[in-house]
């Protein structure tokens, strides 16, 4: 809101400049208001469960069987909170090295004839709708895992599908960040007689660090919020997974599975899952910001 003050004579005129400023302010307020209103809406809708069931019971109840209502139902969200975190973290762990190395290959090692179609291919991967990934996972990946360790629909399947989905985000962000590294850095490294790998690890990657980190965080956000694909491959059983072959249910899948069928306290409890998800994503954004800031300072 603090634009530089102009001389008072000119500021009263309705110049195109002021028109632009006010339009932009309007857009800003609108965007902010939508986010704020969604948050308010979530809180209002989940109020019934938060007051009737109490926040504590979402952590301490023995299980998740909410359809019996506030008094007799049970409302433990912790396994799903964990399911969301584990699938997203696993996917980021798998996809980050893959994405980074594919960007390095594309930017540095691949000849132009290969690099261009390869980049298009990655962009295509980014454009495939999530439900298609989910469908592929359900009919190919899950039966494949089930051959080794039934039931197949598992944390592992979710991690692999999500990794595939966020891989292009990381690869494209890393590719863009690497292309933004100033030429003179690379020439300087070459002049010092550094080899290709030494140039990359010592010069290019540190210079592209913040761009790559942004890509990873965007990808993590997508992994946290993904619904359809994980719903189809994760098994959706509300239990603490003991191994990667056990099924999990994520908060998003919980909402998608039960929302259409839920009434009363059950419905309200699903809004609480939405609220938890919002808090989780906010935490991620804050963490990302603090990491960025520390890097700039240090």
């Amino acid at each position: 809101m603090s634009t530089a003050r102009r001389p008072s004579g000119r500021s009263r005129q309705w110049t195109s400049d002021r028109l632009l400023v006010w339009t932009l302010r309007g857009c800003g307020v609108l965007t902010g208001a939508v986010v704020a209103l969604i948050a308010v809406f979530l809180v209002v809708e989940s109020f019934g469960a938060l007051s009737g069931v109490g926040l504590l019971r979402f952590f301490s109840d023995p299980s998740w069987h909410p359809s019996a209502g506030a008094a007799e139902g049970t409302f433990n969200l912790v396994p799903m909170l964990l399911g969301t975190l584990l699938t997203a973290a696993g996917a980021v762990l798998v996809a980050t090295p893959l994405g980074l190395f594919s960007a390095l290959f594309c930017r540095v090692y691949a000849p132009t004839a290969v690099a261009r179609p390869y980049r298009r291919l990655i962009e295509l991967l980014a454009g495939i709708p999530s439900v298609v990934y989910g469908f592929w996972g359900l009919v190919v990946l899950v039966p494949l895992i089930a051959r080794f360790r039934p039931p197949g629909a598992s944390l592992l399947a979710g991690v692999l599908i999500l990794a595939l989905m966020i891989l292009p985000t990381i690869a494209l962000a890393a590719d863009a960040a690497l292309s933004g590294v100033p030429r003179r850095y690379l020439r300087g490294a070459a002049a010092l007689g550094l080899g290709r790998w030494a140039t990359l690890s010592g010069v290019a990657l540190p210079a592209a660090r913040s761009g790559i980190a942004t890509g990873v965080i965007l990808a993590a956000g997508r992994a946290l919020g993904e619904t359809m694909a994980v719903l189809m491959v994760c098994g959706n059983v509300v239990e603490m997974p003991a191994s990667v072959f056990d099924p999990v249910r994520t908060l998003t899948a919980n909402i998608a599975l039960e929302m259409a069928y839920a009434v009363g306290d059950h419905r309200s409890a699903l809004f609480v899952s939405g609220l938890f998800l919002l808090v989780l994503v906010s935490g991620l954004v804050l963490a990302a910001e603090s990491i960025e800031r520390r890097k700039v300072v240090g």
Binding site: S63, V139, A146, P151, A153, V237, P247
Partner: peptide, 27 residues
């Protein structure tokens, strides 16, 4: 009672159930 059910997979609609069972011999 639903709390007694020891499920390995929880599904939504019929179509998803049929695909899940068709996908593995032990389902």
């Amino acid at each position: 009672d639903n709390r007694q059910v020891r499920a390995s997979v929880v599904i939504g609609d019929n179509e998803q159930g049929i695909k899940t069972v068709a996908g593995q011999a032990g389902a």
